[in-house]
Design a protein around this nucleic acid. Structure first.
Length: 217
DNA sequence: ATCCCGAGGG
DNA sequence: CCCTCTGGAT
C-alpha cells in the first residue's frame, strides 16, 4: 500500500469515528494548559489531573506562580515524575510570562521554547491547541503510532513531525495529534499493542509486517 | 522490568 | 549522541 493511501485511510477513519478528539488534560485557560503540559512529561494525564486542581487554586495566575519558590511548588507536584525539575521549570516559566511576555502565553513556538521546561513538543501543543496552528507535537505515542501505521519512517521526533505536517491535510493536523495520542494510549500500546481489537489494522504497516505473518504460520 | 503527551545539560 | 531527573501504575 502506498504511503499516500495510508494517510487517506487514517484521516478517513478517525475523522469519521473521533471527529472531536482532544486533550485529556484538565485546564481552563492557556496558562493552565501550559502548566499541565510541562508537568505531563513521562507521566500519565490522569496523574496530572489529580495534582492540577490544588496547584491552580494556589497559583491562579502567572504572577502568583512567579512570586513563589520551587520548594513550595514541589509540595503540590511531588507525586508526578521529576518533581524537582518541574517545580523549577514552572517558577522559571511563570517569571518569563510575567517579565518577557506581558502575562500572555506566546503563540510562536520559538518564543515558547525560550521558557524553561518548554521544548519543541510542549511548544507545538500550545501552538495547535491554543492558537489553532497547523503544528504537530510529537511525543512518545505520536512517534510510535505514526511509525507503526506507516505514516512515516522518521527516526527522530523532528523528522516525524515534518513528515506528518507535510502529508496531513492542514485542517486535520491539530486533531490528528490527538488521534495518534489516544490510539497509542488505548489500542496501539508500546509493549503489547492490542492488534486483535484494532479497528485500523487493515492499513497498518506494523500489523501487515509483524502480526499477520505470525498468525499465518 | 517497562512505560507514562520530555527537557536540559554534557 | 548520551545521560539524568524521578514517581506511580502495570
Amino acid at each position: 500500500m502506498l504511503k499516500k493511501e495510508r494517510y487517506q485511510r487514517f484521516v478517513d477513519y478517525f475523522s469519521t469515528h473521533q471527529p472531536q478528539a482532544q486533550t485529556e488534560l484538565h485546564y481552563n485557560n492557556p496558562y493552565q494548559l501550559l502548566v499541565a503540559v510541562i508537568l505531563s512529561a513521562q507521566c500519565t494525564d490522569k496523574r496530572i489531573n489529580q495534582v492540577t486542581p490544588a496547584l491552580f487554586q494556589r497559583f491562579p495566575t502567572p504572577k502568583s506562580l512567579a512570586e513563589t519558590t520551587p520548594d513550595i511548588v514541589f509540595d503540590y507536584i511531588r507525586s508526578v515524575s521529576y518533581p524537582n525539575n518541574k517545580a523549577k521549570h514552572l517558577v522559571g516559566m511563570a517569571n518569563m510570562l510575567v517579565n518577557e511576555f506581558h502575562n500572555e502565553v506566546p503563540s510562536d513556538i520559538n518564543q515558547l521554547q525560550k521558557m524553561p521546561g518548554v521544548g519543541r513538543k510542549t511548544a507545538n501543543v500550545i501552538a495547535s491547541v491554543v492558537y489553532d496552528a497547523p503544528a504537530m507535537a510529537v511525543d512518545t505515542h505520536v512517534f510510535r503510532v505514526a511509525n507503526r501505521l506507516g505514516l512515516t519512517k522518521g527516526k527522530t521526533p523532528l523528522a516525524v513531525e515534518k513528515d506528518l505536517v507535510k502529508n496531513l491535510p492542514e485542517h486535520t493536523i491539530a486533531t490528528a495529534h490527538h488521534w495518534l495520542i489516544l490510539h497509542g494510549r488505548y489500542v496501539c500500546l508500546a509493549r503489547n499493542p492490542k492488534c486483535g481489537i484494532c479497528p485500523i489494522r487493515d492499513f497498518c504497516l506494523y500489523y501487515e509486517k509483524l502480526v499477520k505473518p505470525k498468525q499465518e504460520q
